[in-house]
């Protein structure tokens, strides 16, 4: 297969774009997809101070590298979850990346916050992924708010977003559907959240990271086995294989023609936010979810 742009031997084949790219031209393709997402959805500008959630995986590191190359004002935040055999490796990848590419890095340790994930896991009778996700979202938001960042960027890609949309549709969860998208505005204690990789697939970020010589962590989280999103992703992979381009049209169709309706329902019927009396960050209940987890950990 030849590169669609320069006719050299292609390194990456992309059926959904009916194209192939050599390593040099693939970088151009990837940059254009990210820039298109930023411009079309007005995600942020060069004036914004952007905090990137860095897990050490291919997506978050690819995002940091690309936004750095595009000239945005970025810094990274890594949350060390204290999972044996996993967190030390992930943190090592993030630290090496930030040192090699000159990205400012902040690290928060859940051990110091009294919530190491293995201990949290012992206290809850349900999959730890949702609790862990809640804790990470809380601390990413709180760190951004406390440290003057006005945008929080995550490495969620098209596969993540399409699988999440599929999951929300399966449950017809109006509140989640109304709040899903690559551009969630900042409001009432929440920093603006953006997902600049929503147009590129997991396969595309993996290729980008490999070609950009990013030493990323590809070992899965030991606690994530059997997560429902992994199953939804494999279903959507089958669909994409039969109908290239279907994932993006499913997700963009929702953004352009479905999301507003669900957002309206949620505005009318959804729960209202108020500050948590303990930490001051927004909650729909009396005490926010993370303060409740902290309370359970102390008992």
């Amino acid at each position: 297969m030849k590169c669609t742009r320069c006719k050299k031997t292609a390194a990456v084949a992309l059926p959904r774009h009916n194209a192939g790219f050599c390593p040099e031209c693939y970088g151009v393709f990837f940059s254009r997809q990210v820039e298109k997402a930023i411009k079309e959805r007005e995600l942020f500008s060069k004036e914004d101070k952007i905090l990137i959630a860095l897990s050490g995986g291919k997506d978050s590191l690819a995002l940091a590298r690309e936004l750095q190359l595009l000239g945005y004002n970025i810094a990274g935040l890594h949350i060390d979850l204290a999972i044996p055999g996993s967190s030390v490796k992930a943190r090592g990848h993030v630290e090496r990346f930030c040192s090699d590419f000159g990205v400012d890095l902040h690290v928060l340790e859940m051990e110091n916050e009294g919530m190491p994930i293995p201990e949290v896991r012992k206290k809850f009778n349900r999959p730890v992924c949702s609790v862990c996700g809640r804790i990470k979202r809380y601390y990413f938001n709180r760190f951004a708010m406390d440290n003057g960042f006005n945008v929080l960027a995550t490495g969620h890609n098209l596969d993540d977003e399409a699988a999440r949309l599929f999951s929300n549709v399966m449950r017809w969860d109006a509140a989640y559907l109304g709040a899903q998208g690559p551009d969630l505005p900042g409001d009432q204690g929440f920093v603006r959240k953006v997902k600049p990789l929503y147009r590129v697939s997991e396969f595309e970020t993996a290729n980008y990271s490999f070609l950009a010589k990013i030493d990323y962590c590809y070992a899965p989280c030991p606690y994530s086995k059997g997560a429902s999103f992994t199953f939804y992703k494999s279903l959507l992979d089958e669909l994409e294989n039969e109908q290239p381009g279907r994932k993006l049209s499913f997700y963009e169709g929702f953004l352009n023609r479905g999301r507003q309706a669900f957002a309206r329902i949620d505005q009318e019927d959804g729960e209202k936010l108020c500050p948590c009396p303990r930490c001051g960050y927004p909650t729909t209940g009396e005490i926010c979810g993370v303060c409740r987890i902290r309370e359970i950990m102390h008992h």
Binding site: M1, A10, A11, V12, A13, P15, G20, P23, S201, F203, A206, N207, F210, L211, D237, E240, N241
Partner: peptide, 14 residues
């Protein structure tokens, strides 16, 4: 094909 990178001698293969 979209579920894995295939690598030979440091080069990606289509």
């Amino acid at each position: 094909p979209n579920q894995a990178l295939v690598i030979r001698d440091g080069e990606l293969l289509t």
